[in-house]
């Protein structure tokens, strides 16, 4: 678990990644995935959250988009959503790392800014991580954003243009 939480992340991104663990745990997920990082980013007060909110993806907007994605995914197998009250369970506070969050953090925009001053890298670390989340072409996050009518490419371009 701790290896994704190394100090190179900087304090702000580290706290957002910790937030992703909470987002996964409170949803009863066994793994922390890219969608939990997206939820945690949207709940932060970072410039990345403001950029997401501009396209309707505040925390509630991300939750709604993910819910629509899950409903559509289950419908593809002919399954109706199960009522939340049937899924109430004590949570495991220590979900493991999923593949999609590892991929997101390795695809982030960090390398582009390697030569930039430390202050800029830290200030934009969450935005750079969000770029990594948004660069996935397949899976839960791109599906949720497609159903929400969000242009991922345009969002990535806006984040990359941040200085």
């Amino acid at each position: 678990m701790p290896e994704l939480l190394h100090d190179d992340l900087g304090a702000t991104l580290k706290s957002v990644v910790l937030g992703a663990i909470d987002e996964a745990a409170c949803r009863g997920a066994t793994k922390v995935e890219a969608e939990h990082l997206l939820l945690a980013i949207s709940a932060s007060d970072d410039v990345a959250a403001a950029t997401l909110a501009e396209v309707g993806l505040d925390h509630a907007g991300v939750e709604a988009a993910l819910r629509v994605e899950r409903e559509n995914a289950l419908a593809a197998a002919g399954i109706e959503p199960v009522a939340d009250e049937r899924l109430i369970a004590a949570r495991d506070a220590r979900p493991g790392w999923g593949t999609s969050i590892r991929e997101a953090l390795s695809r982030g925009n960090f390398r582009v800014r390697r030569a930039r001053p430390r202050a800029e890298r830290e200030r934009l670390a969450v935005a750079d991580a969000l770029v990594g989340v948004l660069r996935a072409d397949l899976g839960t996050v791109p599906r949720a954003l497609a159903y929400a009518g969000v242009d991922r490419g345009a969002l990535v371009a806006r984040l990359e243009a941040l200085r």
């Binding site: 997920a29 559509n72 197998a77 399954i79 899976g139 599906r143």
Partner: peptide, 27 residues
Amino acid sequence: PDPTGSEASDLAAVVALRELADRLEDA
């Protein structure tokens, strides 16, 4: 491929069913 196309949706159904099965098992 289109992330919401029919092949992608079949794969996403597997992800959603696994997650649902895990949560049903916990409960």
